[in-house]
Computed example of a mutant assay.
Amino acid sequence: MTTRLQSGDALLIVDVQNDFLPGGQLAVTDGDTVIAPLNRWIERFQAAGLPIFATRDWHPAAHCSFIAQGGPWPNHCVANTDGARFATALRLPKNAKVISKATTVEVDAYSGFGGTDLSDLLQHTGSQRLFIGGLATDYCVLNTVLDACRLGYNVVLLSEAIRAVNVQAGDGARAIAEMQAAGATLLEESPE
């Protein structure tokens, strides 16, 4: 069975950036395995003429989330560096709408909705149902999905296109349960 795409659907790809892939500054285990299923979803959304959005961390060099500034993370996704670029293998179309987040020194944002115009852009395109995949399940995907649910979007979480950091064992599974409790639907199919 294949999920039927319809008017009002949008694809939202969360933070598939080099620093979150193997070898990156804040690598997610098997983070690169989300790329192939996301590319298949991109193809489906393009074929249907539906909008595609992609969030990215776009940090200043002295961002508050970095260890040197007292934050929990190593330097990662610093704006205009190779680590902040989308994965080379990710086939984002030129018309994809890119949302940069956590762009000021003093504010962190795990959610694609945090301090951005993502909600306005989604409303402008008439998007009501969001298909969401990316990195990492237990941080940026979790917070983006929770905000989307709070804002009234129907959220479809692409299980084959998410991976967790798992700072604590089981964080990814707990994040999925929390997203489902908030109203997200977990989709286990992969587009052909």
Rank of each mutant, 00 (worst) to 15 (best):
L90W: 10
R85G: 14
L157S: 03
A87S: 10
L142C: 01
T55W: 10
L5A: 03
T103N: 00
A175S: 14
A109S: 10
E192G: 11
G83L: 01
K97I: 13
T144V: 15
R4E: 14
N154E: 15
G24T: 12
I52G: 03
V141P: 06
G133W: 08
A79S: 11
A84K: 03
L38V: 01
R91V: 03
P51D: 01
A181N: 05
V14K: 03
T104Q: 10
L5V: 00
N80P: 10
I42A: 03
E106F: 01
M179R: 06
A54F: 04
L122D: 12
L12D: 04
Y153D: 07
A62T: 15
N75S: 09
P51I: 01
L21Q: 05
D9V: 12
K101E: 12
A181M: 06
F20R: 00
V107H: 15
R150V: 02
L186V: 09
G134Y: 07
D15T: 11
A177C: 04
D15L: 04
D120V: 02
A68V: 15
D108R: 07
D171F: 15
L5N: 01
G172V: 06
T137A: 12
A148C: 00
Q25Y: 00
F66V: 01
S119N: 06
V34N: 05
D30Q: 04
D108S: 13
W41S: 02
T144A: 12
V78F: 09
C149S: 06
Q17H: 09
V155G: 08
F113G: 06
A87Y: 11
W73P: 09
T137Q: 12
Y139S: 12
Q180D: 03
D57V: 12
N18I: 02
N80S: 10
